[in-house]
Design a protein around this nucleic acid. Structure first.
Lengths: 294, 294
DNA sequence: GTACTGTCTTTTATGTTAAAAATACAGTTT
DNA sequence: AAACTGTATTTTTAACATAAAAGACAGTAC
């Protein structure tokens, strides 16, 4: 009938961790800024800590009575917001049933499945619709437009346009811009991962995203940066969809990234162009090969 | 407490217009497809028509008893959905108070103002947020990011990238593609409007949008086409914001469009490039000049 | 057999509501 | 005076309820 208290529970858990390290908790406003929540929530947490006998709470003094133990924490399944639950459920459905174009999505059904209200589902679907994979017919059901060949091609075209723009913007950054040293660090991570690729190839997607986001940030264009949310979502999905030849694909992507980074550091526009193009072409074909047979 | 019956009312009104022209209404499924609604709604409309004495309704026979008069129609203010009401209110607010960056938007307040439930407001804001002008901090208010100089520049950059892509795609269309004749027709409209610009310059925004959408459709890329929704919204907003020198701006935009169209018809890529670039540059400076002083 | 109608079952749209969380303000303590 | 606490006031979150609208299916008319 009302909202869940996930903020309270998450904050409580983080406060326990904090309590493990210090004998006295700081003032309420200080706790609030440290934990990123309002004083109302802080006070609710303090009240519960006092009630459980973890601290004594009298106005300004909040001394610890005993260190927190693992069973004091709220279990992780209770600290997820409905929005997150719905998102996970929905993505899992996509992975399981595939994204058959033309099929419908029922709000109630998804709500039942996820164990949340229809409101949360509906808001999630509206937010998700910005990715262009689903569409709402007024007064009717949600239409799954599907991860089709056309979708993949359109996506890849925009990506290439944006990446080209961002790479050019990166070259225009001042020599002492922090992005350059970030680039050096991320290059080192690539080299390290390449050295032990057999053990660590599963970590690549995360590195991949960080690298491309670094480049895109140079454009400082919110539309380009936002668009990468879609790319990241699709890639994440696709990584789970088709794991055949994963190690090889990741290994060669790492080499492409390194070549791309070196091209950026050389500041030779022509070299950047060919390096990024090579990467785009292989990323595009990987994406297309992963499409469900149609 | 429940949804409003705007579909019913709109359908009823359109059915009245239909009834003005024919003595007998067709079958229920036929009416449904003609009016774009379900049979359930059609039957509700028929029931009401019979009740009001406009028709006699007995199974398949639906003869007209009297022609509809103006007072039979539902008044226009009753045929707006909450979603539309909220949208209008919100845009009016933007126009009136401006888009001061950093100010907040309260859902309840907007709901009270528009006379609708908070759900409708919330869903509108989520949908609207895809334009990047507002942003939500979890558990907190909506933040108005504002139509700033940065926003305008980022928008113009993307627009230019996309327009370039679409223009190239247009050139690649087959000679017998219907878009070419549509282009000819739209050129004629430009010429006609230019001839009586003093009377008709206010009609330009609509023509402007149709022209650019025609070009963008050639890309057949959903992301490019979707992005034009944002452009159109901003332009519509901006047209109302700053009307100084409107006639002159529109007049020269018409000439730029004609040059652009002629370049496309010449199929000379270089000529297209310079024509579209000229238009982009002037569109960008118009947009920037319209910014509220900051 | 095809198209239409009657009726029943889902699903969506949207206002209402209650708890959670944020915010605002007045009063205290240091 | 500055920072903190106590308390009251908004605002958001999210479930829920219900009418509107869509969709499904069997029976009926042509």
């Amino acid at each position: 009938m009302s909202r869940t208290s996930i903020v309270f529970k998450q904050t409580y858990n983080r406060c326990l961790t904090m309590l493990g390290r210090c004998e006295h908790l700081p003032s309420e406003p200080e706790l609030g800024t440290a934990l990123g929540v309002s004083r109302t929530t802080v006070r609710a947490v303090l009240a519960r800590l006092a009630e459980t006998g973890l601290i004594r709470w009298d106005k300004r003094s909040k001394p610890r009575l005993r260190p927190p133990s693992p069973e004091d924490y709220f279990p992780p399944e209770e600290t997820d917001s409905p929005a997150e639950i719905v998102e996970r459920r929905f993505m899992r459905r996509l992975l399981k049933h595939g994204v058959a174009p033309g099929s419908h999505i029922s709000e109630v059904e998804l709500a039942r499945e996820a164990g949340v209200g229809t409101t949360s589902v509906r808001e999630f679907l509206i937010r998700f619709s910005r990715f262009g994979l689903i569409e709402k017919r007024p007064n009717s059901r949600w239409l799954l437009k599907g991860f089709t060949r056309e979708f993949a091609l359109e996506l890849a075209d925009i990506r290439q346009m944006f990446e080209r723009n961002s790479a050019a913007a990166f070259l225009a950054l001042a020599d002492d811009h922090p992005a350059w040293s970030a680039l050096d660090r991320i290059r080192a991570e690539h080299v390290a991962m390449a050295a032990s690729i057999d053990d660590r190839y599963e970590e690549f997607p995360e590195l991949d995203e960080r690298f491309h986001r670094l480049v895109h940030n140079a454009s400082s264009n919110r539309f380009i940066i936002d668009f990468y949310d879609l790319i990241a979502m699709i890639f994440n999905y696709h990584y789970q969809w088709n794991r055949a030849g994963e190690r090889e694909r990741h290994a060669s992507a790492i080499q492409e990234h390194i070549a791309y980074i070196d091209a950026l550091r050389s500041k030779d526009p022509e070299r950047v162009r060919s390096a990024f193009l090579a990467h785009m072409v292989s990323a595009r074909s990987t994406l297309l090969r992963s499409l469900p047979a149609s």
